Computed example of a mutant assay.
Amino acid sequence: MTPLRGRVVVVTGASGGVGRAVVRELGSRGARVALIARGTTGLGAAAVDVGVEGGSAQVFEADVADYDQVRRAGERIEAEMGPISVWINTAFSSVFAKFTDISPDEYVRTTEVTYLGYVWGTKVALDLMGPRNAGAIVQAGSALSQRGIPLQSAYCGAKHAIKGFTESVRTELLADGSGIHITLVQLPALNTPQFDWVLSKLRRHPQPVPPIYQPEVAARAIVYAAEHPERKEYWVGASTAATLLAQRVAPALVDRYVARTGIRSQQTDERPPTGISNLWRPADEARDYGAHGAFNHRSHAHSPQVWLSQHRGPLLLALAGAAAAALATLRRPKR
């Protein structure tokens, strides 16, 4: 039996993209899923998806940038569905543009949704889980929390903030000897509706930087993290691992490389921007976008790095054991 069967799991940003893929995965595990987002059509379709996969779902409309709305949603979930076992934060919005082209209001709004949305979700989750001293919080992070790139300063800043915030909260929980765990899943470029509905001021249609992965790859990693929240961090995708390594080894070279390639690699010549924006209002109020974006033909359905991240402890022990055995063989006196 899956550890999440029958458990109440909250997902913010549940109506589309990674959040939509996550709720489907949770449905297949038999979870009882509380869906938080703004778009009514997307939320309704997501609830149907959960049921089709074998779980059950309820919809709770809320703007994660508004603490009071998140608080009310959390209290309603516990009153109507029962104690929350897992809270998963995936909601975000952003602006594709050079920093100098983003207005102060747009920057504030992006930060409120993409960073403070995680802060408010985490705070509500801890307040509700605290009396039981049990539960897990999973943050959907990004490789861009390690390496900022052009045209995404607002998003990169928020993801850097989420990493620092999560590390601080984790150490506080450890200091208190808490039974509540918080973990971070660092995601790569994904084929989600983000590139169709995030505000863009570019002349060409935005695209993820290859290699691109399907949102189900992220969903499987996030749900695994929800079942094994004791780990500090999980990495998804070759690009994420490469980013982490390159940034630590040669940050100055990475700066030059990203400056030379980053702007062009995030735009496609295939079509102009859609003109749709979910920054101030939901894009899926009247239309369901689902989990996938427009790049299915270029996206990977699997990631070896997910397995490596999940089995890093046993793998390192096995390698250490093999090394010790080899060393003992070398040191064994010859007869």
Rank of each mutant, 00 (worst) to 15 (best):
S178A: 08
F92I: 09
Q247H: 12
G275F: 03
S265C: 06
E80V: 07
Y115T: 13
V223N: 09
A219M: 08
V198E: 10
T90A: 11
S200M: 06
D101Y: 04
A62D: 12
F96Y: 08
K159G: 04
Y289W: 14
L202A: 01
N89K: 08
Y107W: 13
V64Q: 10
G275I: 02
R331I: 04
K98Y: 09
C156W: 06
A238E: 11
G16I: 07
H297S: 15
T40V: 11
L308S: 11
L199C: 05
L253G: 15
L43R: 02
G55D: 07
R260K: 14
V18D: 10
H228Y: 07
M1L: 11
S309K: 06
I88V: 11
P229I: 08
H311I: 04
L187V: 05
T183Q: 01
G135I: 03
A328E: 10
I276T: 09
V223W: 05
W120N: 07
G262A: 02
P3Q: 02
N296H: 14
E106Q: 15
A238G: 07
R72I: 01
S93V: 08
T111N: 12
P215K: 00
V48Q: 15
E270P: 12
G164N: 13
E106K: 03
Q310H: 15
R72K: 08
V18I: 15
V138P: 05
A34Y: 03
F92Y: 15
V70W: 02
I77N: 02
Q267A: 01
V95Y: 01
T274E: 08
A218E: 09
V59Y: 01
A226C: 04
V138L: 02
V70N: 04
A283K: 00
A283Y: 02
G177A: 00
S94D: 06
S277M: 07
N278M: 04
S85Y: 10
V18Q: 10
